[in-house]
């Protein structure tokens, strides 16, 4: 996330999208781990949350400054650091029902979470591609006339 010419091309929203891709990948790891251990005695399902932290980083409307703001006041409420890194939350999923062997994985819940994660990952990639496509178009066609 350097400054200069390349830094000016991407807005904060773009960096939020890139961060979201990383976070969704980590979430996929956690879900896969839960599913693989759906029958392991004593295994407790893990959850992975990053939405709140990423939303805190997304800034207000019309905010167009790049991710690494020199002013730390832009990132308050403890959700994000001044240089744009966020701390996701890995926690034991609360569950009402525990299996006979101490396993707390609900496979159907994990499947639903996985589907949502994958779809939003693809959607985010698509949006990044649109932005890159716009830039390519501007670079290719802006010099004519």
């Amino acid at each position: 996330m350097s400054g200069g010419l390349i830094g000016g091309l991407f807005t904060r929203g773009d960096y939020v999208k890139m961060g979201a891709l990383n976070q969704r990948l980590e979430r996929q790891h956690v879900i896969n781990s839960n599913v693989a251990n759906a029958e392991t005695p004593g295994y407790r399902a893990l959850g992975y949350d990053f939405e709140e932290q990423l939303q805190a980083l997304s800034g207000s409307e019309g905010d167009n400054i790049p991710m690494q703001a020199s002013d730390p006041r832009h990132y308050i409420n403890g959700m994000a650091d001044a240089d744009g890194t966020i701390t996701p939350e890995v926690y034991l999923r609360p569950t009402e029902s525990v299996g006979q062997d101490g396993n707390t994985v609900d496979v159907d819940q994990e499947m639903a979470a996985m589907a949502e994660n994958q779809i939003l990952y693809k959607a985010t990639v698509e949006l990044i591609n649109k932005k890159i496509g716009t830039l390519k178009y501007a670079i290719a066609n802006g010099g004519n006339g």
Partner: peptide
């Protein structure tokens, strides 16, 4: 069998995400 299928879905999901990531920037 059901657990096997669930793991297969999880594996395919991760594989699909990797394939999508390769397409970043391909207009």
């Amino acid at each position: 069998t059901r657990a096997f299928e669930a793991n297969t879905t999880a594996l395919n999901s991760a594989k699909s995400m990797a394939s999508t990531a390769i397409e970043i920037g391909r207009a």
